[in-house]
Simulated scan of single mutants.
Amino acid sequence: MTTPTQPDPPDQPVDMESLPPEVLQQVRRMVQAEYAKDLRTQLGQVPRTINWRTLSPEDLEQELLDLNAFVDWLRHEYGLPAQIIPPMWHRHPELLWELSALRQQWLTCYDQQAKGNMGVVWHAEFAAARERLRDWVSTSGTRLDRDRATRITEWPGGEAEDFTPPDTSERPVTNRSKDFVAFVTHAVQARQGEQDAAVREIVEGEPKDQSS
């Protein structure tokens, strides 16, 4: 006659204090790392203010792509005309800074940890931003089908020796997506050049080894 098998006894909880100190310390580090990883996943990345002047070439490229995706969503979602967001907004720093600030505000207000009234707060900020965008577009001169660089008023005796006023001749807008890609490529290359120049200045400025 076959003896029926007995069910396995339930797992007994491990007495953490009975573990060797080095093992206990390692387990605690693993638990803390998993907790921090899970917390980051739940909270997401905290939106930050973007300073376009100090981004690395890699970050500059990624932030431009992310901002472009947000602006494209925004204009479709709210049916915004070119008087508020024109196709060549990326060619105008004043529009880029304004739209970037608006995106960061949106990320903050719609973060999953945000309070329930933050959607209303964002729409209030959005209304004010639309008025500013109208002003920027009006003074910049960019339109749906044509674009020119924003004019800069030169101050007599107030400009740097190497200052060159932008070319403000109008150009037709024929392929916005292609122009944006070219803009990003040029911007990243220029920032890489600035970074390389800064590194060379630091290296060349270091005192030489007196023993050589």
Rank of each mutant, 00 (worst) to 15 (best):
S100I: 05
R75A: 06
D59K: 04
R48M: 04
F70L: 10
V27M: 11
P81F: 11
L74F: 13
V46H: 05
L65E: 05
Y110W: 09
D15H: 15
K37H: 03
W89D: 01
W89Y: 15
D38K: 04
L96M: 14
Y78A: 12
L99C: 09
T41R: 11
Y110T: 12
D111T: 07
D59V: 04
W106A: 12
P13D: 14
Y35I: 02
H90D: 01
L107H: 07
S100G: 15
G79C: 12
L43P: 04
P9I: 13
A69D: 14
P21R: 12
Q104I: 12
T49Q: 08
P93N: 11
D72H: 10
P20W: 02
A82K: 03
D72Q: 11
D72A: 09
L107Q: 11
T108E: 09
L80F: 13
D38S: 07
T108H: 09
G79P: 08
T54G: 05
E98S: 15
V27S: 00
Q12C: 10
V14S: 09
V27E: 10
H76C: 10
E63S: 04
H76F: 12
P57W: 02
W106E: 09
H76M: 13
Y110Q: 10
S18G: 15
L102T: 11
S100C: 11
Y35C: 05
Q25T: 14
A114H: 02
A36D: 08
M16A: 14
I50H: 02
L19Q: 09
R75K: 14
W97T: 13
P13N: 15
P86E: 01
D66N: 12
A101D: 11
E17F: 12
V46I: 01
D72I: 00
P93G: 03
I84H: 07
Q105V: 04
R29E: 14
D11C: 09
G79H: 13
R53P: 02
M88S: 03
R28S: 06
Q32F: 01
E58C: 05
E22V: 03
D38T: 00
V31T: 01
W73V: 08
V31H: 06
V31Q: 10
L43K: 03
L99R: 06
V71W: 06
H92D: 14
L19I: 01
Y110K: 06
P81D: 09
Q12W: 10
L65F: 03
H92W: 08
Q42R: 04
W73Q: 14
R91F: 02
N68F: 04
Q42S: 07
L95C: 07
A114D: 04
Y35T: 07
P9G: 12
E34L: 07
M30A: 10
V71G: 03
G79M: 10
V14L: 15
R103Y: 10
